[in-house]
Protein backbone atom coordinates (compact mmCIF):
# COMPACT_ATOMS: atom_id res chain seq x y z
CA UNK A 1 0.00 0.00 0.00
CA UNK A 2 2.69 2.42 1.11
CA UNK A 3 4.92 1.49 -1.78
CA UNK A 4 2.25 1.56 -4.42
CA UNK A 5 1.09 4.89 -3.07
CA UNK A 6 4.60 6.21 -3.41
CA UNK A 7 4.90 4.75 -6.87
CA UNK A 8 1.69 6.28 -8.09
CA UNK A 9 2.79 9.60 -6.67
CA UNK A 10 6.08 9.29 -8.51
CA UNK A 11 4.20 8.59 -11.72
CA UNK A 12 1.98 11.61 -11.21
CA UNK A 13 5.03 13.69 -10.41
CA UNK A 14 6.83 12.54 -13.52
CA UNK A 15 3.85 13.29 -15.72
CA UNK A 16 3.47 16.79 -14.35
CA UNK A 17 7.17 17.42 -14.89
CA UNK A 18 6.80 16.29 -18.48
CA UNK A 19 3.92 18.72 -19.00
CA UNK A 20 5.82 21.61 -17.45
CA UNK A 21 9.06 20.51 -19.07
CA UNK A 22 7.40 20.94 -22.46
CA UNK A 23 6.27 24.43 -21.51
CA UNK A 24 9.71 25.34 -20.26
CA UNK A 25 11.40 24.03 -23.40
CA UNK A 26 8.92 26.00 -25.47
CA UNK A 27 9.55 29.19 -23.54
CA UNK A 28 13.25 28.57 -23.91
CA UNK A 29 12.91 28.53 -27.69
CA UNK A 30 11.25 31.93 -27.49
CA UNK A 31 13.11 33.62 -24.66
CA UNK A 32 16.30 31.62 -24.32
CA UNK A 33 17.11 31.39 -28.02
CA UNK A 34 15.77 34.66 -29.39
CA UNK A 35 15.02 36.91 -26.46
CA UNK A 36 11.31 37.13 -27.24
CA UNK A 37 9.47 37.95 -24.06
CA UNK A 38 6.22 36.00 -23.89
CA UNK A 39 4.16 36.67 -20.77
CA UNK A 40 1.20 34.85 -22.27
CA UNK A 41 2.35 31.26 -21.85
CA UNK A 42 -0.90 30.34 -20.12
CA UNK A 43 -2.88 31.42 -23.17
CA UNK A 44 -1.13 29.06 -25.56
CA UNK A 45 -1.22 26.29 -22.98
CA UNK A 46 -4.98 26.77 -22.67
CA UNK A 47 -5.60 26.98 -26.39
CA UNK A 48 -3.73 23.70 -26.87
CA UNK A 49 -5.71 22.02 -24.13
CA UNK A 50 -9.08 23.21 -25.40
CA UNK A 51 -8.27 22.44 -29.03
CA UNK A 52 -7.38 18.86 -28.34
CA UNK A 53 -10.30 18.42 -25.97
CA UNK A 54 -12.74 19.67 -28.58
CA UNK A 55 -11.28 17.60 -31.40
CA UNK A 56 -11.13 14.31 -29.53
CA UNK A 57 -13.99 14.68 -27.06
CA UNK A 58 -17.45 13.12 -27.15
CA UNK A 59 -20.61 15.00 -28.04
CA UNK A 60 -21.71 16.92 -25.00
CA UNK A 61 -24.62 19.22 -24.55
CA UNK A 62 -24.13 22.89 -25.21
CA UNK A 63 -20.60 23.24 -26.44
CA UNK A 64 -18.49 22.34 -29.38
CA UNK A 65 -17.45 18.71 -29.56
CA UNK A 66 -18.39 15.31 -30.84
CA UNK A 67 -15.70 15.06 -33.47
CA UNK A 68 -14.28 12.07 -31.63
CA UNK A 69 -11.04 12.12 -33.58
CA UNK A 70 -8.10 10.06 -32.37
CA UNK A 71 -5.59 11.36 -29.85
CA UNK A 72 -2.95 11.90 -32.46
CA UNK A 73 -5.20 14.32 -34.30
CA UNK A 74 -5.87 16.17 -31.04
CA UNK A 75 -2.19 16.82 -30.46
CA UNK A 76 -1.66 17.81 -34.04
CA UNK A 77 -4.55 20.25 -34.02
CA UNK A 78 -3.45 21.65 -30.65
CA UNK A 79 -0.01 22.42 -32.03
CA UNK A 80 -1.43 23.75 -35.26
CA UNK A 81 -4.00 26.07 -33.69
CA UNK A 82 -1.34 27.47 -31.38
CA UNK A 83 1.04 27.92 -34.28
CA UNK A 84 -1.57 29.82 -36.27
CA UNK A 85 -2.44 31.96 -33.26
CA UNK A 86 1.25 32.66 -32.72
CA UNK A 87 1.68 33.58 -36.36
CA UNK A 88 -1.12 36.12 -36.13
CA UNK A 89 0.05 37.56 -32.83
CA UNK A 90 3.65 37.54 -34.00
CA UNK A 91 3.00 39.34 -37.26
CA UNK A 92 1.24 42.02 -35.28
CA UNK A 93 3.68 42.44 -32.42
CA UNK A 94 7.11 40.93 -33.02
CA UNK A 95 8.40 44.12 -34.55
CA UNK A 96 7.93 45.83 -31.22
CA UNK A 97 10.56 46.39 -28.60
CA UNK A 98 10.83 43.44 -26.21
CA UNK A 99 9.09 45.16 -23.33
CA UNK A 100 6.20 46.31 -25.50
CA UNK A 101 5.94 42.78 -26.79
CA UNK A 102 5.63 41.52 -23.23
CA UNK A 103 2.77 43.91 -22.63
CA UNK A 104 1.11 42.81 -25.86
CA UNK A 105 1.33 39.15 -24.85
CA UNK A 106 -0.46 39.75 -21.57
CA UNK A 107 -3.14 41.40 -23.67
CA UNK A 108 -3.47 38.30 -25.82
CA UNK A 109 -3.58 36.14 -22.71
CA UNK A 110 -6.28 38.32 -21.23
CA UNK A 111 -8.43 38.14 -24.34
CA UNK A 112 -8.09 34.38 -24.54
CA UNK A 113 -9.04 34.11 -20.90
CA UNK A 114 -12.15 36.14 -21.62
CA UNK A 115 -13.04 33.95 -24.57
CA UNK A 116 -12.67 30.79 -22.50
CA UNK A 117 -14.90 32.22 -19.82
CA UNK A 118 -17.55 33.83 -21.96
CA UNK A 119 -17.95 31.76 -25.11
CA UNK A 120 -19.89 28.91 -23.57
CA UNK A 121 -20.90 27.49 -26.95
CA UNK A 122 -17.24 26.82 -27.57
CA UNK A 123 -15.78 26.00 -24.20
CA UNK A 124 -18.71 25.53 -21.86
CA UNK A 125 -17.58 28.67 -20.05
CA UNK A 126 -16.66 28.55 -16.40
CA UNK A 127 -18.20 25.11 -15.95
CA UNK A 128 -15.35 23.66 -17.95
CA UNK A 129 -15.10 20.62 -20.18
CA UNK A 130 -15.13 17.09 -18.83
CA UNK A 131 -14.95 13.61 -20.32
CA UNK A 132 -11.81 14.36 -22.23
CA UNK A 133 -10.62 10.98 -23.49
CA UNK A 134 -7.92 9.47 -21.38
CA UNK A 135 -5.58 7.39 -23.56
CA UNK A 136 -4.38 3.91 -22.57
CA UNK A 137 -7.51 3.40 -20.51
CA UNK A 138 -7.94 -0.32 -19.99
CA UNK A 139 -4.82 -1.31 -21.95
CA UNK A 140 -3.24 -2.93 -18.96
CA UNK A 141 -4.97 -3.46 -15.67
CA UNK A 142 -3.99 -0.69 -13.25
CA UNK A 143 -1.08 0.47 -15.35
CA UNK A 144 -2.68 3.14 -17.50
CA UNK A 145 -1.15 5.89 -15.39
CA UNK A 146 2.24 4.39 -15.96
CA UNK A 147 1.60 4.12 -19.68
CA UNK A 148 0.50 7.71 -19.80
CA UNK A 149 3.64 8.75 -17.99
CA UNK A 150 5.78 6.84 -20.46
CA UNK A 151 3.95 8.54 -23.30
CA UNK A 152 4.42 11.99 -21.71
CA UNK A 153 8.08 11.35 -21.02
CA UNK A 154 8.62 10.16 -24.59
CA UNK A 155 6.99 13.33 -25.88
CA UNK A 156 9.24 15.38 -23.64
CA UNK A 157 12.33 13.51 -24.78
CA UNK A 158 11.43 13.90 -28.45
CA UNK A 159 10.81 17.62 -27.95
CA UNK A 160 14.06 17.98 -26.07
CA UNK A 161 15.99 16.31 -28.88
CA UNK A 162 14.24 18.50 -31.41
CA UNK A 163 15.06 21.64 -29.42
CA UNK A 164 18.68 20.62 -29.07
CA UNK A 165 18.92 19.98 -32.78
CA UNK A 166 17.60 23.37 -33.74
CA UNK A 167 19.69 25.06 -31.06
CA UNK A 168 22.87 23.69 -32.56
CA UNK A 169 21.86 24.32 -36.15
CA UNK A 170 22.82 27.44 -38.11
CA UNK A 171 19.24 28.54 -37.49
CA UNK A 172 19.86 28.43 -33.75
CA UNK A 173 23.10 30.36 -34.11
CA UNK A 174 21.28 33.07 -36.02
CA UNK A 175 18.66 33.25 -33.28
CA UNK A 176 21.38 33.82 -30.69
CA UNK A 177 23.05 36.40 -32.87
CA UNK A 178 19.74 38.27 -32.99
CA UNK A 179 19.34 38.00 -29.25
CA UNK A 180 22.83 39.30 -28.55
CA UNK A 181 22.83 42.13 -31.04
CA UNK A 182 19.83 42.73 -33.17
CA UNK A 183 21.32 45.65 -35.04
CA UNK A 184 24.40 43.69 -36.00
CA UNK A 185 22.30 40.72 -37.10
CA UNK A 186 20.20 43.02 -39.23
CA UNK A 187 23.33 44.53 -40.71
CA UNK A 188 24.47 41.04 -41.65
CA UNK A 189 21.37 40.78 -43.78
CA UNK A 190 19.35 38.51 -41.50
CA UNK A 191 15.61 38.88 -41.70
CA UNK A 192 15.21 39.43 -37.98
CA UNK A 193 11.42 39.54 -37.98
CA UNK A 194 11.13 36.27 -39.84
CA UNK A 195 13.59 34.46 -37.57
CA UNK A 196 11.82 35.76 -34.47
CA UNK A 197 8.49 34.74 -35.90
CA UNK A 198 9.74 31.21 -36.56
CA UNK A 199 10.97 30.78 -33.00
CA UNK A 200 7.76 32.24 -31.63
CA UNK A 201 5.61 29.92 -33.70
CA UNK A 202 7.66 26.82 -32.87
CA UNK A 203 7.62 27.64 -29.17
CA UNK A 204 3.89 28.28 -29.17
CA UNK A 205 3.19 25.03 -30.99
CA UNK A 206 5.10 23.16 -28.30
CA UNK A 207 3.06 24.98 -25.66
CA UNK A 208 -0.01 23.70 -27.48
CA UNK A 209 1.31 20.13 -27.25
CA UNK A 210 1.81 20.60 -23.55
CA UNK A 211 -1.74 21.86 -23.20
CA UNK A 212 -3.09 18.83 -25.03
CA UNK A 213 -1.07 16.53 -22.81
CA UNK A 214 -2.47 18.26 -19.76
CA UNK A 215 -6.05 18.02 -20.98
CA UNK A 216 -5.81 14.31 -21.64
CA UNK A 217 -4.04 13.74 -18.36
CA UNK A 218 -6.60 15.41 -16.14
CA UNK A 219 -9.67 14.66 -18.25
CA UNK A 220 -11.23 17.94 -17.19
CA UNK A 221 -10.31 21.53 -18.00
CA UNK A 222 -11.79 24.86 -17.00
CA UNK A 223 -10.58 28.46 -17.31
CA UNK A 224 -9.40 28.37 -13.72
CA UNK A 225 -6.66 25.88 -14.52
CA UNK A 226 -5.13 28.46 -16.85
CA UNK A 227 -4.96 31.42 -14.52
CA UNK A 228 -2.58 33.56 -16.57
CA UNK A 229 -0.52 34.73 -13.68
CA UNK A 230 -0.11 31.34 -12.18
CA UNK A 231 0.53 29.12 -15.18
CA UNK A 232 2.74 31.66 -16.91
CA UNK A 233 4.62 32.63 -13.83
CA UNK A 234 5.56 29.14 -12.74
CA UNK A 235 6.99 28.38 -16.16
CA UNK A 236 9.08 31.53 -16.11
CA UNK A 237 10.48 30.69 -12.70
CA UNK A 238 11.28 27.19 -13.95
CA UNK A 239 13.17 28.47 -16.98
CA UNK A 240 15.13 31.11 -15.14
CA UNK A 241 15.96 28.76 -12.28
CA UNK A 242 17.09 26.06 -14.68
CA UNK A 243 19.08 28.35 -16.92
CA UNK A 244 17.56 30.07 -19.91
CA UNK A 245 19.22 29.26 -23.19
CA UNK A 246 20.01 25.75 -22.03
CA UNK A 247 17.51 23.00 -22.87
CA UNK A 248 18.75 20.65 -20.19
CA UNK A 249 18.51 23.53 -17.76
CA UNK A 250 14.94 24.15 -18.85
CA UNK A 251 13.88 20.58 -18.09
CA UNK A 252 15.88 20.52 -14.88
CA UNK A 253 14.27 23.79 -13.81
CA UNK A 254 10.83 22.33 -14.43
CA UNK A 255 11.69 19.34 -12.24
CA UNK A 256 13.27 21.33 -9.41
CA UNK A 257 10.60 24.00 -9.23
CA UNK A 258 7.82 21.45 -9.50
CA UNK A 259 9.43 19.53 -6.66
CA UNK A 260 9.59 22.68 -4.55
CA UNK A 261 6.05 23.59 -5.55
CA UNK A 262 4.60 20.23 -4.57
CA UNK A 263 6.95 19.94 -1.61
CA UNK A 264 5.62 23.21 -0.30
CA UNK A 265 2.16 21.69 -0.41
CA UNK A 266 3.26 19.07 2.08
CA UNK A 267 4.81 21.62 4.41
CA UNK A 268 1.86 23.93 4.18
CA UNK A 269 -0.62 21.17 4.85
CA UNK A 270 0.98 20.99 8.30
CA UNK A 271 0.18 24.60 9.03
CA UNK A 272 -2.43 25.35 11.68
CA UNK A 273 -6.02 24.92 10.60
CA UNK A 274 -6.72 28.64 10.32
CA UNK A 275 -4.02 29.13 7.73
CA UNK A 276 -4.91 26.24 5.47
CA UNK A 277 -7.25 28.32 3.33
CA UNK A 278 -4.32 30.55 2.52
CA UNK A 279 -2.08 27.64 1.53
CA UNK A 280 -2.09 28.60 -2.13
CA UNK A 281 -1.02 32.13 -1.28
CA UNK A 282 1.90 30.91 0.81
CA UNK A 283 3.11 28.80 -2.08
CA UNK A 284 2.80 31.74 -4.45
CA UNK A 285 4.78 33.87 -2.03
CA UNK A 286 7.45 31.21 -1.77
CA UNK A 287 7.89 30.92 -5.53
CA UNK A 288 7.86 34.70 -5.94
CA UNK A 289 10.64 35.08 -3.39
CA UNK A 290 12.52 32.23 -5.00
CA UNK A 291 12.45 34.04 -8.34
CA UNK A 292 13.82 37.25 -6.83
CA UNK A 293 16.56 35.38 -5.03
CA UNK A 294 17.58 33.63 -8.24
CA UNK A 295 17.56 36.89 -10.21
CA UNK A 296 19.70 38.57 -7.58
CA UNK A 297 22.15 35.80 -6.88
CA UNK A 298 22.30 33.49 -9.86
CA UNK A 299 20.50 35.01 -12.84
CA UNK A 300 22.12 32.54 -15.23
CA UNK A 301 20.35 29.64 -13.53
CA UNK A 302 21.48 26.22 -12.31
CA UNK A 303 22.77 25.15 -15.71
CA UNK A 304 23.90 28.29 -17.52
CA UNK A 305 23.97 28.45 -21.28
CA UNK A 306 27.24 27.30 -22.75
CA UNK A 307 27.97 30.12 -25.09
CA UNK A 308 29.72 29.16 -28.27
CA UNK A 309 30.21 32.74 -29.29
CA UNK A 310 32.39 35.41 -27.79
CA UNK A 311 31.11 38.08 -25.48
CA UNK A 312 27.70 39.39 -24.76
Amino acid sequence: MELSGLLSYAIYFGTMISIYGLLTLALNVQWGYTGTLNIGVAAFFAVGAYSSAIITGPQAGGYLGGFGLPLFAGFLVAALVCAILALGVGLLTLNLRTDYLAIATIGIAEIIRLVLKNEAWLTNGVRGMGDIPRPFKGWAEGADDLLFFIFAAALLLATYLFCEKIYNSPWGRTQRAIRENETAARAMGKDVLSFRLQAFVIGSAIMGLSGALYAHFTGFISPEAFDPLFATFLVWVMLIAGGSGNNRGAVLGAAVIWAIWSGSEIIISRLPETMITQAGSFRLLLVGILLEVILLTRPEGILPERLDMGGK
Binding site: A102, W236, Q278, S281, L284, L285, G288, L291, L295, P299
Partner: peptide, 27 residues
Protein backbone atom coordinates in the same frame (compact mmCIF):
# COMPACT_ATOMS: atom_id res chain seq x y z
CA UNK B 1 21.24 44.56 -15.85
CA UNK B 2 19.18 44.41 -19.00
CA UNK B 3 15.78 46.05 -18.52
CA UNK B 4 14.10 42.75 -19.34
CA UNK B 5 15.51 41.26 -16.14
CA UNK B 6 13.87 44.09 -14.21
CA UNK B 7 10.61 43.39 -15.99
CA UNK B 8 10.71 39.72 -15.05
CA UNK B 9 11.60 40.64 -11.51
CA UNK B 10 8.63 43.02 -11.33
CA UNK B 11 6.49 40.14 -12.48
CA UNK B 12 7.73 38.21 -9.44
CA UNK B 13 7.02 41.14 -7.16
CA UNK B 14 3.48 41.29 -8.51
CA UNK B 15 3.05 37.72 -7.33
CA UNK B 16 4.66 38.34 -3.96
CA UNK B 17 2.39 41.31 -3.40
CA UNK B 18 -0.72 39.45 -4.38
CA UNK B 19 0.21 36.52 -2.15
CA UNK B 20 0.86 38.85 0.78
CA UNK B 21 -2.47 40.56 0.29
CA UNK B 22 -4.26 37.22 0.24
CA UNK B 23 -2.43 36.10 3.34
CA UNK B 24 -3.10 39.28 5.28
CA UNK B 25 -6.64 40.05 4.19
CA UNK B 26 -7.94 36.69 3.05
CA UNK B 27 -9.15 35.58 -0.34
Amino acid sequence: KDSVILLISSFGIALILRALIQIIWGP
